[in-house]
Write a protein that binds this DNA or RNA. Structure first.
Lengths: 404, 404
DNA sequence: GCAATTTGTTTAGTTGCGGCACAAAGGCAG
DNA sequence: CTGCCTTTGTGCCGCAACTAAACAAATTGC
């Protein structure tokens, strides 16, 4: 401690306090014009103008005066706000059992560039993460864009604050692997600037859908999704991921949804995990499951193309009923104002939306909470976009500090 | 709209922005001195001094300079901060199946005066609330204290934003009774100033315990408690009650904890509600249940005095195992950093804490979340204190506005 | 009694933002 | 085309809440 510059600058570093909220409004598409920004922020036009000018000076947004055709209202047309195409990006990475992938993602959730990635995942997390980061670094070199951070989505619960992957069983990775530490060191080694983050994939899907997809505007968003095996959940509260006190919240796979069901490795019977995932569906429909990394596709294709087959239909209805029971339990506990489904659960919803909604309404305690909207996830690469959101968060919280 | 005074005063009305946080720190006992207040608020000594002086000028706190014996540290002793004994109070009211009660509660959760209340609850909510408010108004007349608001705890889920009691079945009240509206109008009719609030009793227990009891300092506090019948839950996140999007969160009574258990009115079997409440305990211990309004006391007494009886012990262990299963499910979903138990669950915890903790650790997914501390509720009249917290909240958020 | 330490107080300066007045840019009616 | 109305953007003033820095006060330890 030199005793001089430690306590100084607290206010200077904070910068204009409305800057972060303003950027978030543009980022999520809720502030198309400066006039809307003014009312959404609850500040005067003068302040909103200054904030927009500052975000423009930072190279994050564009302020287009007189874009020609405005809305039909009278009065002076408002300046339009939009994310700059050539602004900074974040590096987003994703690891699943069917491969890994890297992309550059700009503000607004726009995927600027994607690397082809790999379809096999090695057993050594350091090697996998090294390759995926290198793919992202290559994209950065090709595009010459500025990178302000990196985010990684993994199909495992991530314990906080350590950043270890607790159950990456579908990756053949060792349990408890320090994925955040590995990812961070690989990002540093690749010469990429900015902080690095790691999160559970379903959490990041929920975050992405909340900001840019089917979850926009929800205050209490519950997301439930399958991968190839197992079920994950996530909750976004007031725009922030709720990960619990140690990152393990919304581990919903072991809710009991079938008292007479098959045993689960958790010690119980009939858990959501083993009753509503793609393997459960294929088994119930009496099909031969293919390799693990294609279970989701196999189950989804079966559901979409052979729903007329009685065995398929019966299996689907069975899973829908079980899923509905699980969702009803979660609705009773969390009381969300919107539920979105991904993976096979999304396909089940679309196969028979009325049945699923009826089960949830019937088994959640009161009609009011039973009438919670249940929707499909809509984004194409939501876990990549969600990983990018992690990296964008410091910028959204305080653009001045995050961008130096 | 007169077009003149609508948008003005937004900043003036806000007042000194650190005032609310400072009062909350004193209120919850986390700022015993001005020096601590300075560091907790993260402001300069000058600001903390001004804030403390302003709270003193508002008549809320005392600033005692030189209280004689300070702590052993060297340097100039810091001024002590404390809640004023003769400061304003809130009116707290509570309705349970075994009676209702009114009290005056000061800052810091101190119960200033209590009205004896009544042990029978009539079927007409308007009449009950009228009587309990009148009892509180009488206390106010006797003490001459200033009242800044009123809060009511009811043993029912309270739907938001309507403020209706959805399932006050143990009160013989009609479902959907507009309790907030009735309570507010009775408070107004009694000439009591300030806003009126209504909440679920377990929620308010959790809030009170978080601020003044066993939940202090927890960031993610889960509270589970029984009354005479049924089980309720509550979650306090970052100091605020999580009531979900429509007030119905943490309706935990219908988690499945015994697949072969008795049928529940919800349509399932073996729900937490019917497997771990006082009636379930008395039945399992082969005792004759007394009248509904004494079930909790009967079960608690039995558990504490006759634990040596094999039937009692077996019943207790059965309930502990079921409760542990339910808690494990909640821990998996919510990942709290502390769990507190009330009602019979508290007694069960104290009868065999190791057994309960072992079940939760065993059935929650990872050791880390399994090691969540499970504690007993400690406050004497926590639902009254919690109801008072509701009424204090506007003052804690912005003392200047709330106190005019 | 004197230094060291910690806390309280005063003063000056910075700053984010509201309030206000005015300018700008469109629609609408004649 | 020309006013008039409506809505939005901008410059200027001032306030209020804070920080920073210097000084004063109260205690411990030597």
């Amino acid at each position: 401690m030199n005793g001089k510059s430690t306590t100084t600058r607290t206010k200077l570093e904070r910068g204009r306090s409305a800057l972060g909220p303003a950027l978030e409004l543009v980022h999520t598409g809720r502030a198309p014009t400066r006039a809307v920004l003014t009312s959404e922020l609850g500040v005067t036009r003068a302040t909103a103008g200054a904030v927009a000018a500052e975000l423009e000076a930072l190279g994050l947004i564009k302020v287009d005066s007189s874009p020609g055709s405005a809305a039909g209202s009278q009065g002076r047309p408002s300046h339009r706000l939009s994310i700059r195409d050539d602004g900074p990006v974040t590096l987003a990475a994703q690891v699943h059992s069917d491969g890994f992938r890297a992309a550059l993602v700009g503000l607004g959730g726009r995927i600027v560039a994607t690397a082809p990635g790999c379809v096999t995942v090695m057993a050594d997390p350091a090697q996998v993460l090294g390759e995926v980061v290198e793919a992202g670094a290559q994209l950065l070199r090709e595009t010459g864009l500025r990178c302000v951070g990196a985010g990684l989505a993994v199909p495992s619960a991530v314990a906080e604050p350590e950043g270890t992957a607790l159950n990456p069983m579908h990756l053949a990775w060792p349990g408890g692997a320090p994925v955040r530490e590995i990812f961070t060191s690989r990002v540093r080694a690749a010469g990429i600037t900015g902080p690095a983050f790691t999160g559970n994939d379903v959490n990041l899907v929920a975050l992405a859908e909340h900001r840019h997809g089917a979850g926009r505007g929800a205050q209490h968003l519950l997301c439930v999704a399958t991968g190839h095996r197992g079920v994950g959940g996530a909750l976004v509260l007031d725009g922030r991921l709720h990960t619990g006190s140690s990152g393990l919240a919304l581990e919903v796979g072991h809710l009991t949804v079938n008292p007479e069901g098959r045993p689960c490795h958790c010690g119980g019977r009939g858990c959501l995990d083993v009753e509503t995932d793609p393997l459960a569906f294929l088994t119930a429909a009496r099909r031969t499951p293919g390799p693990e990394e294609s279970l989701l596709k196999q189950a989804g294709d079966l559901l979409r193309t052979e729903y007329a087959d009685p065995a398929v239909r019966t299996a689907a209805e069975e899973l829908i009923d079980r899923l509905g029971l699980g969702l009803a339990g979660l609705v009773n506990i969390l009381n969300p104002d919107r539920v979105i489904l991904g993976g096979l659960h999304r396909d089940l919803l679309e196969a028979d939306p009325d049945r699923l909604r009826a089960v949830v309404a019937d088994r959640s305690l009161w009609g009011r909470s039973g009438s919670v909207p249940i929707l499909s996830c809509t984004l194409a690469h939501s876990s990549l976009v969600g990983a990018a959101e992690l990296a964008w968060q410091p910028v959204l919280d305080d653009p001045l500090t995050a961008l130096v």
